[in-house]
């Protein structure tokens, strides 16, 4: 059997093959690197700095804890350095608009596989160009950053909408969320501005971390408690404020009453409120049962207090 000359070999070599050294000087062997960083945004920016510093083209950039075995080329571990990260930031700011750096940060938080290389190529392209490249949507990386930003902004907006606080007995407003992306760092600002006079906690059950606002600043927290039912986010009765049940019930009633049954359109409803968000939405949780004597009693109490204080007011 004859194989045509122009047919490709079955295996394409993955690592670059050294050119035969003749009378000419050999082309330098371009080594490819896997960069490992600590998984933070500053770590990624430091990595980009190192790439430029060493003139070492990366094959992949990966968070150290997610690292897959790497067969060809060399592994380089980058130690996060704030000065180096800062210099990359300044470089980006010089070449692009004010919002660009933030949009890279947001894209980074989307936790998508391969995002590091997209951000690296974006920065490389921005640095090499004389124009601001942010709007060149014919470039795949630029378009991708724009699209991921749209996704993550939508998720942030959903969190602004779907966070449901429960008031605790010691007056902290507590909410659980499980967003698609790691948007917690992007939420603090909105809720700080909205509720400057109330203490609140937003806890991400998927990533097991939360933020707590103490009316002065927002702190990162972890939760060590069994008082929260993780499947519904509901607080245990003994740590819940006595009025909480009443307002949750009223909200559930309102949600039903404000609906126009003649216009029912579940497809549209689910499009706007996807099912994966339902478990922490109070209006989607089973209606508080008035039949149990205890609930009835505590609700009547709450109502009486509620109406009395109002009369006094």
């Amino acid at each position: 059997m004859v194989t045509p000359n122009n047919q490709l070999p079955l295996f394409t070599p993955v690592s670059p093959v050294r050119q035969n050294a003749g009378s000419y000087a050999p082309k330098p062997y371009k080594q490819q690197f896997l960069f490992l960083y600590d998984g933070t945004f500053n770590g990624l920016l430091t990595t980009i700095f190192e790439i430029y510093e060493r003139k070492a083209e990366p094959l992949r950039i990966e968070a150290a804890h997610k690292n897959q075995p790497f067969l060809f080329g060399q592994c380089l571990s980058v130690e996060t350095n704030l000065d180096k990260a800062q210099r990359v930031m300044l470089g980006i700011e010089k070449k692009t608009s004010q919002g660009a750096l933030h949009s890279l940060y947001k894209a980074f938080l989307a936790e998508q596989p391969g995002i590091e290389m997209i951000i690296y190529r974006w920065v490389k392209y921005a640095m090499a160009s004389n124009m601001n490249i942010e709007t060149n949507f014919t470039n795949d990386d630029v378009l991708r950053i724009k699209q991921i930003n749209k996704q993550i902004s939508r998720e942030v907006h959903r969190m602004h909408a779907f966070v449901r606080f429960q008031r605790t007995a010691d007056n902290i407003y507590f909410a659980t969320v499980s967003p698609d992306f790691d948007v917690l760092p992007l939420l603090a600002d909105h809720f700080e501005r909205r509720y400057p006079d109330q203490q609140w906690v937003i806890y991400d059950t998927k990533r097991k971390k939360g933020i707590y606002f103490n009316m002065t600043e927002t702190l990162d927290i972890e939760l060590e408690t069994t008082s929260v039912a993780m499947n519904s986010g509901t607080l245990d009765e003994e740590i819940t404020h006595e009025e909480e049940q009443l307002f949750k019930l009223l909200w559930q009633n309102y949600f039903v009453a404000t609906n126009i049954t003649e216009r029912k359109n579940m497809k549209l409803h689910i499009k706007h409120v996807p099912k994966r968000y339902w478990k922490y939405l109070s209006e989607k949780q089973p209606e508080i049962n008035l039949n149990t004597a205890q609930t009835q009693h505590s609700l009547m109490g709450a109502q009486a207090r509620y109406l009395n204080t109002k009369k006094a007011a």
Partner: peptide, 20 residues
């Protein structure tokens, strides 16, 4: 100070079953 603000873009906190 106080309670609440407004960001200019509006937020739909939920949607009824009729999709509003």
């Amino acid at each position: 100070k106080g309670l609440g603000n407004s960001d200019g873009m509006g937020i739909c906190h939920s949607y009824t079953e009729d999709g509003r």
